[in-house]
């Protein structure tokens, strides 16, 4: 079940999940939509450098290090935004940090990143194929940004770049729950 703006605010206030900075007290105003909350673009863009001849083989160890080593880190500001040329692909992050802890009892929450229609109309994808923020995630959300449009596009820090749709997770999200599911002791761990 997708949370309404009012329920998102309620979940933020009761600590079920968090968005930092706090998006605001009025669910009837931006960044809240009726059933999502808008998130902003952060202040870094990562450009994966083209190095030939290289094929990414995820079976090999150290992929994270390889990606770091072969990417260019570009800080952006309002005065110096990043020009996303048509056809180009970069990584960005949300300005906001989110946290979706796994609850011992009761509801858990997960979320999805979706684009915004205003930006989509310009031909910009802000994520593709991996929108899910699973229960247990904590941090800034990485955006896979691709310009499929006819024109270059400015990526400006602080712009509303995507929306976060928050959903209830029905049932317990681990498949070996006997360790702590249904327990009400504070540690939640079998003695």
């Amino acid at each position: 079940m997708i949370l309404s703006n009012v329920d998102i605010l309620h979940g933020l206030k009761d600590g079920s999940f968090s968005i930092d900075p706090f998006p605001g007290e009025d669910p009837g105003k931006p960044p809240f939509n009726t059933s999502s909350v808008d998130l902003r673009l952060g202040e870094e863009i990562l450009v994966l450098e083209k190095i030939d001849p290289v094929q990414l083989d995820l079976r090999k160890p150290g992929i994270a290090h390889f990606l770091h080593k072969n990417s260019k880190h570009i800080p952006i500001t309002e005065r110096q935004p990043f020009t996303l040329i048509k056809g180009d692909f970069v990584l960005g992050t949300t300005l906001e940090r989110v946290n979706f802890p796994i609850h011992l009892n009761g509801l858990c929450y997960s979320a999805r990143i979706e684009g915004k229609s205003s930006i989509a109309r310009c031909g910009i994808l802000v994520h593709f194929t991996a929108p899910t923020i699973h229960a247990g995630f904590s941090g800034n959300i990485t955006l896979e940004i691709l310009n499929m449009g006819a024109l270059d596009f400015l990526l400006i820090p602080g712009m509303f770049i995507c929306q976060l749709i928050i959903e209830e997770v029905k049932g317990y999200p681990v498949n070996t729950p006997n360790q702590f599911v249904g327990q009400d002791n504070p540690a939640g761990v079998v003695k």
Binding site: L46, A64, L67, H68, I102, L104, G136, G139, N140, A187
Partner: peptide, 25 residues
């Protein structure tokens, strides 16, 4: 762990720089 949330533990890892400043590999 806290009362509300599933127990967490700290596991030993190696790290290096992440792609973004807010993270590490």
């Amino acid at each position: 762990t806290t009362e509300r949330f599933a127990p967490t533990v700290w596991i030993k890892v190696r790290i290096s720089n992440g792609m973004f400043n807010s993270e590490k590999a």
